[in-house]
């Protein structure tokens, strides 16, 4: 049985411009110890999906309209706030994109690092401090017993992200949600942080949900990948399958648009147009207006939204009747 099973999750935002279907019927599961990727452009709903699971969506305007998220026999979406508090930051940890703004600049690292332990494990302060120093050591901060009494501004960006990882993993969560954890970092630092997440994951057996827009990073760290577009998953596959045999036109377009994959001097391939306005209902495939295969093909633009079907073992794709062959 999977560790986390999300079924038909729907999160809408009720704004003045209308109802924005940020997440519109998303299902996926996460097994213990594995890394599941969610990849897509800005605004595709990757972060909203994960924040919905932890009740971190501002309500209003946001509202979880439906679905279930089963974790250890409980539906996360139906939990009361006090019950959720026992899970968020304890059994499901979070790291964010920007380590500059997600640490409190007024508080010492020690205060911030032991907070989850005091809250969730009711340790004494000195016990918690010992654990925190060990955790800093494990994420590769030199002289942890001294550095723990520093303030966030005394660390570099990469070091701060290490502190964030230490803080998220200190309670030994079963799931770690990493929301673009390396996007704000240099390539060399990115490499170190990715390696660190992998190492700690192997040591602790944590499952990781990895959110990113960078396909290259996905291909390096994930076991299975969900490709998200306009609030829905368009494709899901084991990582090797997704890159060797992508089925959905959006996945293919995304792969073609990576600058590193193209010859020097030739015009870089770009996806034409913009993602759809999620406040407007979409008939047919949501990618059709930008898709190079759809054109005037009537079956791409009508007949309701295409459903995910299993095209080959474990390889799911949104079955657009116009241009996806199954």
């Amino acid at each position: 049985m999977p560790l986390l099973e999300v079924e038909d999750l729907k999160t809408y935002f009720h704004t003045r411009e209308g109802v924005v279907r940020a997440v519109d019927g998303v299902s996926f599961d996460v097994d213990a110890g594995e890394t599941v990727g969610i990849v897509g452009e800005s605004g595709s709903g990757k972060s909203v999906t994960c924040y919905s699971l932890l009740k971190l969506i501002p309500q209003p305007p946001g509202k979880i309209e439906g679905g279930r998220a089963m974790f250890d026999g409980k539906d996360l979406l139906a939990l009361s706030e006090s019950r959720m508090r026992a899970i968020r930051g304890k059994r499901i940890g979070l790291i964010f994109q920007d380590p500059m703004t997600s640490l409190n600049p007024y508080l010492k690292i020690s205060t911030q690092l032991i907070e989850p332990l005091l809250l969730h494990e009711s340790l004494s302060k000195s016990e918690a401090l010992d654990r925190a120093i060990k955790e800093l050591d494990a994420v590769g901060i030199p002289e942890p017993e001294k550095r723990i009494h520093s303030y966030p501004h005394e660390f570099s960006g990469g070091m701060r992200q290490r502190v964030m990882i230490a803080m998220a993993l200190i309670t030994r969560p079963e799931i770690l949600i990493a929301d673009e954890p390396t996007t704000a970092l240099d390539v060399t630092i990115q490499r170190q942080v990715l390696d660190l997440i992998k190492t700690r994951q192997d040591e602790l057996g944590t499952a990781v949900i990895f959110i990113t827009h960078d396909l290259a990073v996905v291909s390096e760290v994930c076991d299975r990948v969900n490709v998200m577009y306009a609030g829905r998953f368009v494709e899901r596959a084991p990582v090797a399958d997704l890159f060797s045999a992508p089925r959905h036109p959006y996945t293919r377009a995304l792969q073609r648009s990576i600058p590193a994959m193209q010859e020097k001097g030739e015009q870089l391939y770009t996806i034409p147009g913009l993602p759809p306005n999620l406040a407007q209902p979409i008939d047919g495939c949501s990618f059709a207006p930008r898709c190079e295969f759809s054109g005037d093909n009537e079956s791409c633009h009508s007949g309701g939204q295409p459903q995910l079907v299993e095209a080959s073992p474990e390889h799911w794709v949104q079955h657009c009747r116009g241009c996806v062959e199954v």
Binding site: S219, E220, A240, F243, Q255
Partner: peptide, 12 residues
């Protein structure tokens, strides 16, 4: 060399 090694690679 280090900068080149650090680039994430697509493994297909």
């Amino acid at each position: 060399k280090m900068l080149l090694d650090a680039i994430p690679q697509i493994r297909a």
